[in-house]
Simulated scan of single mutants.
Amino acid sequence: MLSSMTGALELGLLYALMALGVYITYRILDFPDLTVDGSFTTGAGVAAILITNGTSPWLASLAAFGAGLAAGAITGLLHTKGKINGLLSGILMMIALYSINLRIMGKPNVSLINVDNVFTSIDPLPLMTIVVVLITLLLVLFFHTDLGLAVRATGDNSRMIRSFGANTDHTTILGVSLSNGLVALSGAMVAQQSGFADISMGIGMIVIGLASVIIGEAILGSRNILIAAVAAVVGSIVYRLVVAFALRAEWLHLKTSDLKLITALIVIVALVLPTARRSWKVRGTARRRTAELGASAAQSANSIQTGGKS
Rank of each mutant, 00 (worst) to 15 (best):
F196K: 00
I51P: 10
G68Y: 01
V46L: 06
L149S: 09
A218N: 15
I208Q: 13
F65R: 05
A301F: 08
A70D: 07
T42F: 02
M1W: 09
G148P: 12
A60W: 01
W58G: 03
R162C: 12
G216N: 06
R278W: 04
I104E: 00
A246S: 15
P57N: 12
V282A: 15
V140R: 04
A166F: 11
A184H: 08
V133T: 03
M5P: 08
G307F: 13
S296T: 13
I173G: 11
S257R: 06
I304M: 07
A270I: 03
T25G: 00
L254F: 13
G12H: 10
S163K: 12
S194D: 03
G21E: 03
R248L: 14
V238L: 04
W251K: 12
T80S: 14
A295Q: 10
D37A: 08
N302Q: 11
R289K: 12
I268T: 13
I206M: 11
V243E: 10
A286G: 03
I130T: 02
I268E: 07
T290I: 07
P108Q: 06
I268Y: 04
M160Y: 15
F31Q: 01
D156F: 08
K281L: 10
I266N: 05
A228H: 01
G68I: 05
G12M: 08
A229L: 01
V151Q: 10
S200Q: 14
P124D: 01
V234D: 02
L134H: 01
G43L: 08
R287W: 04
A231D: 00
G72N: 02
Y15I: 02
G165S: 13
R283S: 06
S200K: 13
V22Y: 02
L138S: 06
I225K: 05
I51E: 10
S257W: 01
V190M: 00
T306A: 14
R162H: 11
L185K: 05
R248I: 06
F164V: 14
I262P: 07
R27G: 00
R162T: 15
N117T: 15
G181Y: 08
